[in-house]
Design a protein around this nucleic acid. Structure first.
Lengths: 188, 188
DNA sequence: CGATTAAGTTAGTGGCCAATCACTAAGTAG
DNA sequence: CTACTTAGTGATTGGCCACTAACTTAATCG
């Protein structure tokens, strides 16, 4: 039995939650599964967080923040096309090496839409704020040109969805996208 | 009590399932909720479909098919920029008037990724095939130019995600989009 | 009519799951 | 050593949910 500070445990819980929620989404993931991955009893999660929803929220926030960091670090000291290529390559590398990151992102989008429809705008505001920080992180290096940034984000979203659907790297749908380093897709 | 043929009932079930799964996703939607919306007892669903998964699959397939139809009908008899405008406008109209369609699309993407990760490639193959039909439906009217089609789909995906996150129509993130619903319109 | 078929129901089962409660064990300060 | 704090557990509970089995009602047709 390894004792940790509550803060450290919360950190482990967030990381575990990102992996578990990525696969099953909010409803498809049990707190039991998260606890098991952390190596802690299930009821203890409710000492660290007020409820399951709070764990999901923390995982979503962390996911957005990590994505922002990828852009910020990749574009450091670069501008224009160089920054664009660096960010695109870094992002491709991210979702290729850690598909959970991509999945958690999609789970976040789906969950926020459901929350908004249910009248809960707190989650939505957090996600929109986090997304805008990602947007800004891309906007400045790209020369603060709105339509350029929009295009960049649009291609990113297409890459997300194509990866999620499991189109193999050789499929024609990938033609016309930056070919730098594609995720190794599923079948077909 | 209104009796219908099994085929007609299946049809109602699919429509109801699209709405319910759109909100809650696969795990967040009970067969009870679907049955209630159809106006039929919950166990009867299992006479019409082999299981919950089959219902979700049918709803996903229908959703893809309907999206394809929107593109096909909007672009009928048009080519190039005119087709692009018509398809973009029709799609915007679709997700504005019926947010469930958008939500169900996202649920499909999330579910297919989970299924692939779990080793179930049957669902993935269906979705990829359906998505390719949408892609083709846009590809030909746009002049069979791959990069044009890719860009078109990319903007569509960004629109999906921005809508899902609930960004208001006045937000800056939409700036580069409405005008560049014709991103290649005469320039570039 | 009576028989057959197809549409639909009521009742139930086994399993899972978020959250609570009461408790134990490990540090730590005086 | 004692008193106190903080990390962590075991047992439980009330509720939901996918799915099954057995029965009932309505249409169809010779």
């Amino acid at each position: 039995m390894v004792r940790m500070s509550a803060e450290e445990r919360r950190e482990s819980v967030i990381r575990a939650a990102m992996s578990e929620f990525a696969r099953g989404g909010y409803h498809g993931t049990s707190t039991e599964a998260i606890a098991k991955r952390v190596g802690v009893s299930q009821p203890y999660l409710f000492r660290l967080f007020p409820g399951k929803k709070a764990i999901f929220l923390a995982a979503s926030a962390r996911c957005l923040e990590e994505t922002r960091k990828v852009f910020a670090e990749a574009s450091e000291g670069l501008r224009g096309d160089e920054a664009l290529h660096a960010m695109a390559a870094a992002y491709m590398r991210l979702i290729a090496s850690d598909p959970d990151k991509l999945q958690m992102q999609l789970q976040t989008y789906v969950a926020v839409a459901a929350a908004e429809a249910a009248g809960d705008h707190e989650f939505g505001e957090m996600v929109r704020a986090g997304w805008m920080e990602i947007w800004e992180a891309a906007h400045l290096p790209l020369g603060a040109d709105v339509s350029e940034t929009t295009t960049f984000m649009a291609y990113g979203m297409l890459i997300n969805i194509l990866s999620a659907m499991g189109f193999s790297a050789e499929h024609r749908v990938w033609e016309g996208l930056y070919q730098s380093s594609q995720p190794q897709g599923g079948s077909e």
